[in-house]
C-alpha cells in the first residue's frame, strides 16, 4: 500500500476520500451544466423551450435551429446566418496566428541566443504590452487603420491581432528557447551555420511543443476576441463573436433561444475542437510559459 501513494505521499481516510470525490463531481457538474443546457436546447423546437423545462431532454428532436443559425438567421440587416462571419473569422485568424507565431519564434530565438545590451528591457516592454487594457489603444488604432486603408477589413483585424499577440508568442518561445542548450548554438556556429541556418536546422526541428502552445493560444484568443472585432470591423468583416452577439442581442421579433444556443455552440466549436484535440499540450506548455514567467 505504501507503494500506491508514491505520487503524492499524502494519505487520506475513506470518509475524506468520499467527500473529495463528491466535491470534485459537483464541480464537474457546475462546469458542464451550461454546455448541457446549450446543447439540449439547441435541438428543441422553440415552443418546448418557452414552455419551460430547460433541463429536460428534447421531446421533439430537431436540427432546424442549427441550420437557421448557420445560414438564415437575421444578423444585422441581412438574414445571412453566421456562415459569412464564420469565414470572416477564419480569414482573420489563420494569417494572424501564422504571422504572430513566426515572429514570436524569431524574437524568442534572438532574445535568448543572440543576446545584446538591453535585451531584457526590450523583452520587458514586449511583455508589458500583453497586459495593457486594449481600451488605451482603441482610438489611435482606429485612426491608424483608416490611414493605412485597412479600416473595416479582415486584414486590418488580422494586423491588430498580430501586433497585440507578439508579446505572448515571444514570451512562449523565449522561455522555451531559454532552456535550449546554448552549446548547440555554439557548435553550429563553429560548424559554420549562420543565423537562419541555425534557426531552421537546429532550433525549429525541436520547437514542436512550444509551437503547438503558441498556435493554440493565439487561435483561441483571436477567435474569441470581441473588443477589436466590435471596434474595427464593419458589417462585412465582422468576426463570429460580434455576429453572435448581434444575433443574441437583436431586439426585433421573437427571441429564438434555440437558434441562439446553436449559434453559440457554432461560435465555440473551433476552439473547443482545438482544445479537445491538443489541449493537453497546451496546458503543459502554458504552465511552463506563464507560471515560470
Amino acid at each position: 500500500m505504501s507503494q500506491a501513494s508514491q505520487d503524492t505521499a499524502i494519505r487520506t481516510g475513506r470518509v475524506a476520500r468520499t467527500l473529495i470525490y463528491l466535491v470534485l463531481l459537483l464541480f464537474a457538474l457546475f462546469y458542464l451544466l451550461p454546455l448541457y443546457v446549450m446543447l439540449v436546447n439547441s435541438v428543441k423546437p422553440l415552443e418546448e423551450i418557452t414552455g419551460g423545462g430547460m433541463m429536460n431532454l428534447p421531446q421533439v428532436f430537431t436540427l432546424e435551429p442549427w441550420f437557421k443559425a448557420w445560414s438564415s438567421a437575421q444578423i444585422g440587416v441581412d438574414p445571412t446566418g453566421l456562415k459569412p462571419y464564420f469565414w470572416n473569422s477564419i480569414k482573420m485568424v489563420v494569417p494572424a496566428v501564422i504571422v504572430s507565431t513566426v515572429l514570436g519564434a524569431l524574437n524568442g530565438y534572438v532574445l535568448t541566443k543572440w543576446r545584446f545590451k538591453y535585451d531584457t528591457i526590450l523583452f520587458g516592454l514586449m511583455l508589458f504590452a500583453c497586459f495593457i487594457p486594449f481600451q488605451i489603444v482603441l482610438i489611435p488604432m482606429a485612426r491608424m487603420l483608416g490611414i493605412i486603408g485597412l479600416a473595416g477589413t479582415t486584414w486590418g483585424l488580422a494586423l491588430v491581432h498580430v501586433v497585440y499577440g507578439i508579446g505572448f508568442t515571444t514570451l512562449y518561445f523565449r522561455n522555451y528557447y531559454a532552456v535550449f542548450p546554448t552549446e548547440l548554438i555554439r557548435a553550429a556556429q563553429i560548424d559554420g551555420a549562420g543565423f537562419f541556418q541555425i534557426f531552421w536546422r537546429i532550433l525549429l526541428p525541436s520547437s514542436g511543443p512550444i509551437a503547438v502552445v503558441s498556435i493554440i493560444w493565439q487561435f483561441t484568443n483571436i477567435w474569441n476576441d470581441f473588443l477589436f472585432g466590435a471596434s474595427f470591423a464593419d458589417a462585412n468583416s465582422q468576426p463570429m463573436t460580434v455576429a453572435l452577439n448581434n444575433l443574441v442581442q437583436s431586439s426585433t421579433g421573437v427571441k429564438e433561444y434555440n437558434v441562439h444556443f446553436a449559434g453559440a455552440i457554432l461560435a465555440a466549436m473551433p476552439t473547443l475542437l482545438v482544445y479537445i484535440v491538443a489541449g493537453r499540450y497546451f496546458v503543459r506548455g502554458l504552465m511552463a510559459g506563464s507560471v515560470k514567467g
Binding site: P34, M38, N224, T241, L244, A264, G279
Partner: peptide, 26 residues
C-alpha cells in the same frame, strides 16, 4: 478537461449561455 474547457470559450459564448441559464423566465 471538464474543469478546463470553459477557458477555450469566448466570453460572448459564456455570457450567452449564462444569460439564459440565469433568466428567471426560462
Amino acid at each position: 478537461p471538464i474543469y478546463l474547457y470553459p477557458m477555450a470559450l469566448s466570453f460572448i459564448v459564456t455570457g450567452t449561455a449564462w444569460k439564459w441559464f440565469l433568466d428567471p423566465g426560462i
